[in-house]
Design a protein around this nucleic acid. Structure first.
Lengths: 180, 180
DNA sequence: CGCAAATAATTAGTATAATAATTATCTTGA
DNA sequence: TCAAGATAATTATTATACTAATTATTTGCG
């Protein structure tokens, strides 16, 4: 195939290589790291979202985590089993289930923030500002092309998933403790 | 926590956010995309490594894929079941099992190369050289700090995993059809 | 009103991935 | 030599994640 192997082709190949490597490392990374907290990465992530968004519907939690609702169910099963969260069926709409943190869960959240992302965080913080800017810029571009490409194949959950290329998603995830 | 929220802190946070987002997207991405080929992403990846490295030991395959040997066993189970690979126990050392592609497997590999990484590839190829350079640079830095950081917690497979921060790994993955 | 369509959560089934334990084999040292 | 340790692959168990199918419930149309 690609005979000429232009410089660009090589750059693209290298990017894919690096990307794959980063995935691999970060993945096993956060697993080990976060297991220190007694909870796995996704479990902890769910807890963090819960901490921000008080009682929240299962489907909304899934949307915030960018994962499928059925996956969330499993995560909640395990968290509930460990007394970290509670599930309450809404009295208004009996189809919905509201999820909240237990007292124990709240305590967990306050205890772990550092451990969760701490390791990568430490690494990044050790870099110079210029380097941070470089990484940031590269990732932005990456997110851009991914964001543009991801919709067509199969929308994820089919709600407001139409063209928030970057900003909307980030906005939704930042602080904002649901003004209620 | 972080009261002052310096600009650097914000940059770091944003990088982590973006990173997570990229993971999420690429993940579901390659799943959908590669399923078009009838095989899942990791299965296809294993096939590609096999195509390059002829008969190879299970543990070496795992090392090349940066995943755990036990995970490879499962992937091989499914590939073998589909007549894509063969497993042969070595006669020299009865502990080792050599894996190779079947004829059908070889054909599969020639048929799919584009689909596998094609989508991300297309996106990247549409970018300008300067943007590619930017992404590349950012990822290099990221890989750098990850490579430096990943060893201490728990070495992955405990072989020559001592200080090949970046280059060694890439070198091992590039072409090089195992010079015997 | 009453049943069909839509919606929310869950379950079922498959695949990936990691750790820990097991089995078989090989290598060494007493 | 032969038992102790190391090594290779595998199995078991747990967790994540997806798609499809199921169950409840709510809405809306005729």
């Amino acid at each position: 195939m690609g005979n000429t192997t232009s410089q660009r082709d090589r750059m693209v190949a290298e990017i894919l290589d690096n990307l794959r490597r980063v995935f691999q490392v970060v993945h096993g990374y956060s697993r080990r790291a976060e297991r220190v907290a007694g909870l796995t990465g996704p479990q902890l992530w769910a807890m963090k979202v819960l901490a921000e968004s008080a009682p929240i519907r299962v489907s909304d939690l899934a949307r915030r985590m960018y994962i499928h609702p059925s996956t969330v169910v499993g995560i909640l099963d395990r968290l509930e089993q460990r007394d970290q969260v509670t599930r309450t069926r809404s009295s208004e709409d009996h189809r919905v289930v509201m999820v909240a943190l237990t007292d124990k869960g709240k305590e967990t959240v306050t205890k772990v923030p550092r451990i969760a992302q701490g390791l990568l965080l430490t690494g990044l913080k050790g870099l110079e500002k210029a380097q941070l800017a470089s990484i940031s810029e590269g990732l932005d571009l990456l997110v851009g092309i991914l964001g543009a490409d991801r919709m067509p194949p199969q929308l994820l959950f089919s709600r407001e998933v139409n063209s928030p290329p970057v900003g909307a998603i980030r906005a939704a995830r930042k602080k904002e403790p649901t003004p209620a």
